[in-house]
């Protein structure tokens, strides 16, 4: 509900607020449609461990834990984790970056979080990007239970020594009348606030793109072109978000 309200504000003042955070993007191949207003990419929370690794030019291991919306069927190289890796490499040329993906399809936050300890032992990432909420919304899990599951998951990830970024649901206008998304968005925001970790607001960003006409997310297309473009933009936005949250100075950044 709150998120909806927030988003309607975006709709209203989007034109004004769309001060391009990515105008000076160095990647030439990017379509011009990836603009995200600065406030959607800023966060008060920090990524201290990631910042340290980047400062010391040590290899940065990122793990994306997601569900099916983390991937595009049959074109993995174009999904946002792959794009994130490519763009981080361009932006931080002196930094070895590796992004691995763990897809837990059809698992709720609680089911996914139960495997975190093992997963962290195996992968030992510096930064975990946990994308969740969609399966919970589809199955209409009790929002309180969802919140405590996300809380437990985040704690487990932090205890294993990683920085954590939460990523919320996709904006999916076609299914808006069929599932109730706002409680899950709200609860993820609350957990992020409580743990002082950054929340990548994928929902608001995609909604912004749709409302601004950059992408037509109502499109019933069967081709994967739209999905590829959206994931490319998500990867860019996410890279920018991580760099900002890790307070990477301009000296280390290739602009």
């Amino acid at each position: 509900m709150k998120a909806k309200v927030l988003l309607s504000l975006i709709l209203l003042c989007g034109c004004v607020a769309a001060s391009s955070a990515r105008a000076e993007d160095a990647v030439p191949a990017g379509p011009p449609a990836c603009e995200v207003p600065a406030y959607l990419l800023t966060t008060e929370s920090q990524l201290p461990k990631t910042a340290e690794i980047i400062r010391d030019n040590k290899p940065l291991e990122i793990l994306v834990i997601g569900s099916r919306s983390t991937a595009i069927p049959s074109s993995e190289d174009s999904s946002y984790p792959a794009r994130l890796q490519a763009i981080l490499k361009e932006k931080l040329p002196s930094e070895p970056v590796h992004v691995s993906v763990e897809i837990q399809s059809k698992k709720t936050a609680e089911e996914a979080a139960s495997g975190f300890v093992k997963l962290m032992e195996a992968k030992k990432p510096t930064l975990v990007i946990w994308q969740t909420g969609t399966v919970d919304a589809i199955r209409s899990i009790d929002p309180d239970e969802f919140r405590s599951a996300v809380t437990d998951g985040v704690s487990a990830l932090q205890q294993a020594g990683a920085d954590v970024v939460l990523m919320n649901l996709q904006y999916s206008p076609r299914t808006e009348t069929m599932m109730s998304v706002p409680p899950y968005l709200d609860n993820m925001r609350v957990v992020a606030q409580e743990h002082e970790i950054p929340l990548f607001d994928r929902f608001a960003i995609m909604r912004q793109w749709n409302d601004q006409g950059q992408f037509d997310l109502f499109n019933p297309t069967r081709g994967s072109e739209l999905a590829k473009q959206v994931h490319d933009c998500l990867g860019r936005a996410l890279a920018q978000f991580v760099i900002d949250a890790a307070h990477v100075g301009p000296a280390q950044q290739q602009n």
Binding site: S69, K106, I138, R174, T175, M178, M179, P220, A227
Partner: peptide, 16 residues
């Protein structure tokens, strides 16, 4: 919607 909409971006959401 279920019969017309097959955008690969939303395969997960279509689970609804």
């Amino acid at each position: 919607v279920a019969t017309r909409f097959e955008n690969p971006l939303y395969t997960e959401e279509m689970g609804i």
